[in-house]
Design a protein around this nucleic acid. Structure first.
Lengths: 192, 192
DNA sequence: GTTGATATAGACAGACCTGTCTGATAATGT
DNA sequence: ACATTATCAGACAGGTCTGTCTATATCAAC
């Protein structure tokens, strides 16, 4: 969910700059709206170098999505040791933090989904992988919290997650953190 | 939310066919991914005729969004007389019906938002209008139902609405109707 | 019959798209 | 010293995009 591009080691500096520039532009303007020429110009990389690192634009898009997945998993892992309920709340608190950053434009995975209709496309597969991981994460935390129906409640929490990320983008987001706490605690209060 | 294109009178048959074809293609494949040439071919309309009805492609996109708005309002109006709570549930039941239609690809408004980053764009303005109408509708129904906090609860219901439309598209949607009923009744059970 | 509105097919311009290729330059390891 | 690897700038091909334009055809009203 975070779209920070920074500080991840990579095979080469040029590749790192390409992925950073692509991340910034894809997220800010949409994938189809950004051409290769602008990415290589922003990354100060020659076109031939780009195509030596990424066989096609779609490979770059897939790398972008996979890195967002990696960043999301890393951010959760870096939350530190917390009891299940507090961990759940801390995960959802990240929504408010992200939405108040300048340039916030919703969830990169959902935005990409809107531009990739074919569910068998590798980009969509990478997005599905990310969502499967997140769903399992929530199920585990709800079960560890002694929740009576972790499977169903995890599904609803994901519905809230997606909807809150949208709300922070397209609606007035001044009360998003309060709204998030309210919605999640309402949901957790049911079923123990 | 419904993407049915049908049966709305229009100024001219050619314009009607253009809007129907554009609706079908924009929704199925995304807006940037569909060119004018394909729309006029699908509508059996000459290019000059297209540009006499729509000064630019963006005007066609705005007409597409405004018609989806009109269809949504019409569908709600056609629900007939129902008590507030049943009306709310009936509105949300439409999600399951829509998501099980072949070719369902999520919410046309949110998909368009992902492709239009500039919030001052007329397309985005039309989407904002639609969302404002829907928010007011939910607030009124919650207030009429004697709910203790209709403003906040309407915000959460919109979060659920957006999230459920996404879930029906990108996740397994076999239990979407049950999930919707569960999430909405859970939410309505709090605050009277 | 004549006029005016609306439609047709399709060429065209200018921009942008992805992806390939050439040929030169710099850094690195042995 | 030499080979390898990565990089550079940029031309180029072939396609698609939006939007304009020409020239013709249909049809209704008067």
């Amino acid at each position: 969910m975070n779209v920070v591009t920074s500080h991840r080691p990579d095979r080469s500096p040029a590749r790192r700059r390409l992925l950073d520039t692509a991340t910034r532009l894809f997220y800010a303007e949409g994938i189809h709206a950004v051409g290769i020429d602008r990415i290589i110009a922003g990354a100060c990389v020659a076109k031939a170098t780009f195509y030596s690192h990424f066989p096609s634009k779609d490979d770059l898009v897939r790398a972008y999505i996979e890195e967002q997945d990696w960043l999301g998993r890393t951010a959760i892992a870096e939350l530190g040791q917390l009891p299940p309920r507090e961990r759940l709340l801390a995960i959802f608190d990240r929504i408010g933090e992200a939405a108040h950053q300048p340039g916030y434009r919703g969830c990169p995975f959902l935005n990409a989904t809107a531009e990739y209709p074919d569910p068998t496309n590798p980009v969509r597969q990478a997005i599905d992988d990310h969502r499967r991981w997140f769903r399992e994460l929530l199920r585990g935390l709800l079960a560890a919290n002694g929740h009576s129906d972790p499977v169903r409640t995890a599904d609803i929490l994901i519905v809230l997650w997606d909807g809150l990320l949208i709300s922070g983008h397209v609606d007035d987001s001044t009360e998003l953190s309060v709204l998030t706490r309210d919605a999640v605690t309402r949901m957790l209060s049911i079923g123990r």
